[in-house]
Structure formats: structure tokens, C-alpha cells
Computed example of a mutant assay.
Amino acid sequence: MNAACLIVYASMTGNTEELARYIGKGILQAGGTVEIKDIIEADVTDLENYNGILLGSYTWGDGDLADEFLDFYEEIDGLDLTGKCAAAFGSCDSCYEHRGRAVDILSDKLVELGAEVVLDGLKIDLAPTDSEIEQCIQFGEDFVKNHFDLRGVL
């Protein structure tokens, strides 16, 4: 099993898309492979074809998952992600009470579906700063490292 990863994200302003791209860069730097898809282009069955899954969404309103992610979120209920490594990430705004709650919602769903969430959810306020860009790249590298540690093969 190799570190073939899929990143699926929803982005309204481009911030979460930017996070996805930097995380993808980290995955590549660590020796993994990655496909990055906007939620609109993704199909739930795509998740079955990768052994590393990263889901990203901005937090909307009072701690809600992005509207674009709702159908996908409901459709993945039938999947068995046992044996898959996973993580969640997203852009958020610390001005709101439930900062980055969409990341928590996605992490919980991944666990519910049997995936092994190998990293705490990454929450970045609005557009990433230079140091947060490095944090995103490191998140991707750490995802591959944790995947490798769990599976023993890259």
C-alpha cells in the first residue's frame, strides 16, 4: 500500500483551496502522491480508491459545514473507510464562537466511517500567513509520515 492521497475541499473565498494546495505540496515533498478535488468535482466513491483521505471545509455561519459539502457529507454515510488514514482541515474565523467547527464535524464523520484520523484537524484563520503556509506544508508531510508509520510502506 502506498501513500496515495485524495484531498477533497469546499472553498468559498479560495482560502480552503489554498490550504488544500499547500497540504498537497507537503504530501508530495514527503514522497506521497496526491489528487486534489473541489467538492463539486468529487464523487463519494472516490474515497474508496485512496488509502489517505483529507477533507477540507470552511466553517459557515454559527459553526456549520459549508453548504457545498452537505450532499457529499450525507452520501458518504454508506462507505466503510476502515483501513484508511484520514485528516480534516479548513479555513475559519476566530471571531465566531465555534471557530473551525466544520473541521471537527469532518473529523468525527471520518472516525464514524472507520477511518483512522492520524492528525488533529488543521484550522487556519482566513487566508494563511507565511508561517501558516509552512504549517500546511508540514501537515501534509506529517500526514504521509503517520500514514507510513501505520502501514509500514510508502
Score class of each variant (00 low, 15 high):
residue 37 K to H: 06
residue 63 G to I: 01
residue 115 A to R: 10
residue 100 G to H: 09
residue 87 A to K: 02
residue 51 N to E: 11
residue 69 F to V: 05
residue 48 E to G: 00
residue 55 L to A: 03
residue 84 K to S: 11
residue 84 K to W: 04
residue 44 V to I: 12
residue 81 L to N: 02
residue 42 A to C: 07
residue 27 I to L: 14
residue 45 T to W: 07
residue 122 L to I: 13
residue 20 A to R: 14
residue 90 G to T: 09
residue 7 I to S: 07
residue 94 S to P: 07
residue 104 D to R: 08
residue 27 I to R: 13
residue 70 L to E: 15
residue 88 A to S: 15
residue 31 G to A: 02
residue 80 D to S: 10
residue 14 G to Y: 11
residue 82 T to Q: 12
residue 17 E to Q: 15
residue 45 T to L: 13
residue 81 L to P: 09
residue 88 A to L: 07
residue 122 L to H: 11
residue 51 N to T: 09
residue 14 G to P: 07
residue 67 D to E: 15
residue 61 G to S: 10
residue 59 T to C: 10
residue 74 E to S: 06
residue 53 I to M: 05
residue 46 D to Y: 02
residue 56 G to I: 06
residue 47 L to V: 05
residue 46 D to W: 00
residue 10 A to S: 15
residue 102 A to K: 07
residue 90 G to H: 13
residue 107 S to H: 15
residue 84 K to E: 08
residue 117 V to A: 08
residue 56 G to D: 04
residue 80 D to G: 08
residue 92 C to R: 10
residue 110 L to W: 06
residue 35 E to T: 10
residue 94 S to D: 10
residue 108 D to N: 15
residue 122 L to F: 14
residue 76 I to H: 02
residue 34 V to H: 04
residue 42 A to R: 03
residue 80 D to E: 08
residue 94 S to W: 01
residue 118 V to K: 13
residue 64 D to T: 04
residue 74 E to Y: 12
residue 119 L to M: 12
residue 108 D to K: 09
residue 49 N to K: 15
residue 102 A to P: 06
residue 68 E to Q: 15
residue 87 A to V: 02
residue 109 K to L: 09
residue 102 A to C: 01
residue 12 M to V: 11
residue 97 E to V: 04
residue 91 S to Q: 05
residue 29 Q to A: 14
residue 41 E to V: 03
